[in-house]
Amino acid sequence: MASPLRCRAGLPCRSWLASLLLVLALGVALLPVAPAQAAMDYAKQVLIGADFHGSDLRGVTFSLTNLREADLSGADLRGATLFGAKLQDADLHGADLREATLDSAVLDGTDLRDALLEDAFAFNTKFNAVKIDGADFTNVPFRADVLKKLCLDATGTNPVTGRSTRASLGCA
């Protein structure tokens, strides 16, 4: 009878190959896997007075959420959805709201000083007694009546972009 072909360490080649594949499979299985980055969904919640200051909230959904008196100052809200959110007396000072959806949101007494709203969508947003000193509204569509109201209070320059609030709104 012929002896089986021997590979290293005196093991038959098939056993050696199977052992190698097993080690490789275990090695791959034990590699750290990065968690999927899924945006949080806070839609339709009551978050009155919530503290999100300085938080990474990119892509988070706050649709129809009550964020009255919430602290979102310095938060990264790029691409976030705040559709229909109640933001009365909320602090968004220095927040990054680029490409955020603010349509139909209620901003009454909201602090938007030094906020960056470039390319945000806020066409049907209600702005009443809002602090906008230093806010950048570049490429944000507004209804004519809202734009006229915002231009009355537009002062300052955004510390990040260097754009004046009046120029970013297109005030005459």
Results as ranks from 00 to 15, higher is better:
48 I>A: 06
121 F>N: 09
87 L>W: 09
116 L>T: 10
126 K>M: 13
112 L>M: 15
84 G>P: 13
54 G>L: 11
129 A>I: 09
62 F>M: 07
18 A>H: 03
46 V>S: 14
56 D>M: 14
67 L>V: 07
59 G>R: 10
25 A>K: 02
138 T>V: 00
110 T>I: 10
44 K>W: 01
93 H>R: 15
72 L>T: 06
13 C>T: 02
60 V>H: 08
155 T>Y: 04
85 A>G: 07
117 L>A: 10
70 A>W: 02
6 R>A: 06
53 H>T: 03
51 D>Q: 11
138 T>M: 00
143 R>N: 08
47 L>M: 05
88 Q>D: 06
151 C>E: 02
160 V>P: 00
97 L>W: 01
127 F>V: 14
165 T>C: 01
10 G>P: 05
15 S>A: 15
146 V>G: 05
73 S>F: 04
32 P>L: 13
137 F>C: 09
164 S>D: 12
145 D>H: 13
140 V>Q: 08
89 D>N: 15
63 S>F: 05
25 A>F: 13
133 D>K: 11
58 R>G: 09
140 V>R: 09
35 P>V: 14
28 V>G: 00
123 F>N: 05
126 K>S: 08
76 D>V: 09
165 T>A: 07
98 R>Q: 12
162 G>Q: 04
135 A>W: 03
166 R>V: 05
70 A>C: 06
140 V>L: 06
121 F>L: 09
145 D>L: 12
34 A>R: 15
146 V>K: 02
152 L>Y: 08
104 S>P: 09
166 R>G: 06
41 D>H: 06
92 L>P: 07
50 A>N: 00
127 F>I: 13
130 V>D: 05
31 L>N: 06
122 A>F: 03
122 A>G: 03
40 M>E: 15
85 A>C: 03
157 T>W: 02
32 P>G: 11
34 A>W: 14
90 A>H: 08
36 A>N: 10
56 D>N: 15
37 Q>P: 01
28 V>T: 07
72 L>D: 06
171 C>I: 01
153 D>V: 05
20 L>M: 11
34 A>Q: 15
152 L>E: 12
27 G>I: 07
116 L>C: 12
